[in-house]
Nucleic acid binder design. Structure first.
Lengths: 358, 358
DNA sequence: TTGCTTTTTTGGAACGTTCCAAATATTGTA
DNA sequence: TACAATATTTGGAACGTTCCAAAAAAGCAA
């Protein structure tokens, strides 16, 4: 640890420079300075110029808190709560949201619930205290509709993103989960697979039920049975993927394909397969969901369902802005399309059944 | 798109409930209510109880803006600017920072510079306007010391994290980059490698020079030459890793090992190797830096240099808090240890030289 | 009851901005 | 030059809190 204490700490301004200071410095009233700041047209060019110079000279920094206090609150701040800051898909969503927000002079405040109700509630409370104009939220498992109701009633519009609270009638932007998994599963079936498992996800999340429904749609349509042990819900992570695959194959070693709740879980499946000497793409077909950046580079490259994070970001922001400007706008539910990306991890399987018979 | 417009939008409170409203509702003065809110001991239990009930009944939400206005600014808000929200290491840093901050009743505002000076400046400005208590910042390439100076002078303490602005004398928390790459390179040398390349990183970032220096330390110590073409700086990404490896092997097909600036680049190298039919761990040794969650699961598992993101988070937050409470505290530079994690990607190489001679 | 101390409550100023109505400066016209 | 019309500038109230000094209430001893 170095301590270059020969260095002088610059003089900390005891007090921040205020609009009043600028006014005094330039010899005008604070009202005039305020007008310049707001870009009012009713101030003469000469004055504007002098004031701008003074602002520069004094190093004045606009104080949004004070301004917002007078302007009954709003100041281009929105609260964004996702499930995890370091889960790749959420990170990409935040990335997209940041770009779009800043373009529109909105400052997003990002945080994660870490999938717990307690943290979610704490964050919502803090954000309200900081007077955000509204929320974009990926509700933590177990979130009740009453919570969202409370927000809305308090004057905070919100848009649910990626997931939605069951039986809630609030705006939402969700993926076409059902169709996504339907298509993915159909693809597996077309390749000849019969014993297909559905791995991962949590029953407390709307995603899960939609994706599972899509899976079941395809299985039922093809007249394939799904023993209860073929459905293995487990919380999102690579390690969970490994564990789940092991359990699945113990339950029925004859399983030839797994549809995963997410790419992250699929990565776990890939690594567990390698460890067990199972060749993915030959002995076992694997399909993910999300299409993370890494999924192109896994070995074999992962077949997965792509949902554009940018679409989530764009739609949810647009929707939130609508409610912020007019709280009475009709409640809308947007569905983001899901697209099957066929790569190598689901290549034609080695099956010992030549025809369809069990 | 569904529109369940049979649903009634709850009545939006026209105006937010204020402390005054609560006071009137309970029949006391706003001062008393304020005291209750601050947990003052000079308010009687009976009153406290009545006020708390009233707060609950009215649905009052504390207004930090107004409070902070009176309390000369500070309100437990800090600005955190990293290089990218969706780069895995940064994401993990944010995750850790969030956990620690909330524990200490600090609300972090996260954003990314996207490696551009313009966005960084815009964010700093906005955060100042929102009156954050200080900054934790991973400076964008090309950041000048004068920028940090301006912040500090305006009363915003800051801590640099992961990188530091050259010739700046501001607090910083950085990894032991030089030692990390020194050890990694030494490991490669011990395994018998002679033609070792250093891949990735940007010359505008302090990290790069430190890691490169560590690399050179080890190479020089072993008396190994490093042709200019062995050093291939390029901006952080998987695709860049692929491109870089190709260029490197074109320059000298005899290269048997690459030390990468980051795990992300190493992933690119891994996938490019596979494409070119090069067996990593046999024909080519690869070492990364960061130890991302995925690095255990790549094939082969990636040998890399681990630096705990939690340490970065803990130290930088602690340091920032020090400066926030006493701006005159001596400037400190903390170094986070780097630890070589030996896995499979650098297994003993096939070399045609049996002894050391060129 | 009185006077004294201690506890509890309170009104009003302050924070830094915006907004408004009113004051002042500038311009054009007769 | 004088007057209206217009352009520009300004003081003060307001936003919702905290803080302070001071008022009111409560408790206690004589």
């Amino acid at each position: 640890m170095h301590k270059p204490d020969n260095w002088n700490v610059p003089d900390f301004a005891g007090r921040r420079v205020t609009l009043h200071d600028v006014a005094r410095h330039v010899g005008m009233s604070k009202s005039t300075v305020s007008l310049v700041l707001q870009g009012s047209s009713s101030v003469s060019d000469k004055t504007r110029e002098r004031v701008l110079r003074a602002i520069d000279e004094t190093g004045y920094v606009y104080n949004r808190k004070a301004a917002a206090l007078r302007q009954s609150g709003r100041h281009g701040l929105i609260g964004v709560i996702v499930n995890g800051l370091n889960t790749p898909y959420s990170a990409e969503l935040l990335n997209q949201l940041e770009g779009l927000s800043l373009e529109q002079d909105i400052l997003p405040m990002f945080a994660s619930s870490s999938e717990t109700l307690a943290q979610q509630e704490k964050l919502l409370q803090l954000y309200m205290e900081h007077n955000v104009g509204g929320f974009i939220i990926c509700p933590a498992p177990g979130t009740r509709s009453t919570l969202l109701d409370k927000l809305w009633r308090n004057g905070f519009p919100l848009v649910q993103v990626m997931r939605e609270v069951p039986f809630s009638q609030f705006p939402a932007v969700v993926a076409d989960n059902r169709r996504g998994l339907y298509e993915a599963t159909r693809h597996l079936i077309k390749l000849g697979h019969r014993k297909i498992a559905f791995l991962g996800g949590s029953e407390d999340i709307s995603d899960y039920h939609e994706r599972l429904a899509g899976f079941m749609d395809a299985m039922n349509e093809a007249g394939l049975s799904v023993p209860s042990g073929y459905i293995y819900p487990i919380l999102q992570s690579r390690a969970a993927g490994r564990k789940a695959l092991k359990a699945l194959l113990e339950y029925d070693p004859g399983i030839t394909a797994v549809a995963c709740f997410s790419d992250l879980m699929a990565y776990g499946v890939l690594s567990q397969s390698r460890e067990m000497g199972i060749k993915v793409g030959e002995d076992l077909a694997v399909i993910g969901f999300d299409d993370l950046a890494d999924s192109r580079l896994t070995h074999p490259a992962l077949t997965t369902v792509r949902v554009e994070a940018g679409d989530f970001a764009g739609k949810s922001l647009q929707l939130l802005k609508t409610y912020m400007s007019d709280p009475q706008s009709p409640v809308t539910r947007e569905v983001i399309p899901a697209k099957l990306m066929i790569r190598e991890s689901c290549g034609a399987p080695h099956l010992n059944t030549s025809s369809g018979g069990e």
